[in-house]
Write a protein that binds this DNA or RNA. Structure first.
Lengths: 166, 166
DNA sequence: TGAGTTAACTTCGAAATCAGAAGTCAAATG
DNA sequence: CATTTGACTTCTGATTTCGAAGTTAACTCA
């Protein structure tokens, strides 16, 4: 996937994409969030080839997103489970799902509803939040150079103030 | 990208990935959210080849995520701007960025800080929200079959109640 | 016990994709 | 009017990715 090494790109989005920035990887994770754990289950549900699935699970395991442990029922079988780091990808998946339900909707309605276990209420969606918890849109937010920013980053930010690029 | 046609997968995540589920596409969008608009600017900042950039911009434009309009300063030049549909991908980008800043952190700190324009305060992050606006984690939520669900979906959901798959 | 079957992979050749160079064309610049 | 620039397309060879067919070890059933 990475035509350039992305770690060198000094960008958190790029670093995340190095782990999950692949079509199949996100679908594997979607299923993992539904409780799917075994190689065969992923392969059958997704219709993915075993070589691809194998390499994706390996990447995800090495990145610490999934944990691979032997099943106690069946010594041949491994269970791939989301770690805390993996569970933290939940907003990524849900925001992809919400966008799809909204902008590439099925005419019959939603395929899945998300229900809060504690209350039985549907969840409201996913949002970027202000310091005091209000939902914000892209237009409400401005990026600013942080401690690890470099020249490339500052160039990018300066686009905002020059009306058109280069 | 799509080894199978994903529209047929009846899944909102898959439908979204059909549009943005590509490494370069997300990086293009990241730059678009920073205000980048022209072909050359994308090409130079990303180091992407023009053939790939051209095809990605076309896909994004056809999907309605970007709008392509002629620049008024320079009649040769086109501006690619985020539409409302594109702006709605903000939580996707920010959740990718937040995950990267947290789990693949730069030792020196964050590269970018996000500041709410109106208050000057840093944004709190991205979260899945309950009906009354509390942030929820993956463990607080349960998926339920919606109106457009099919057999495949219901199979997937039933995993939760069977301890191990298949 | 031993003939399947199943889980989780490898390996391999074919097909798709990519970067990079070169070319196109119309508009701007000098 | 010659050159440069912006936004592409086309081409080609190198890399990547794919699915199909093994492989191996562990279970299951007779």
């Amino acid at each position: 996937m990475p035509p350039v090494s992305l770690s060198e790109m000094n960008c958190a989005v790029a670093r995340t994409l190095e782990v999950v920035g692949d079509w199949w990887t996100l679908l594997i994770l979607r299923n993992a969030f539904h409780g799917m754990r075994t190689f065969d289950a992923f392969q059958q549900q997704l219709g993915i080839s075993s070589s691809v699935l194998s390499s994706r699970l390996k990447t995800l395991t090495e990145a610490g997103v999934l944990e691979r442990r032997r099943s106690r029922d069946d010594r041949r079988s491994f269970e791939y489970r989301l770690t805390d780091c993996g569970l933290d990808l939940y907003p990524v998946l849900i925001s992809l799902m919400e966008w799809g339900e909204r902008w590439a909707a099925d005419p019959r309605g939603r395929r899945l509803d998300l229900i809060e276990k504690a209350t039985g209420q549907p969840v409201a969606g996913v949002a970027v939040l202000s310091a005091d918890g209000r939902p914000l849109s892209a237009r409400d937010v401005r990026p600013e150079a942080g401690p690890a920013s470099d020249d490339q980053t500052r160039d990018l930010l300066s686009l905002r103030h020059r009306p058109a690029a280069s």
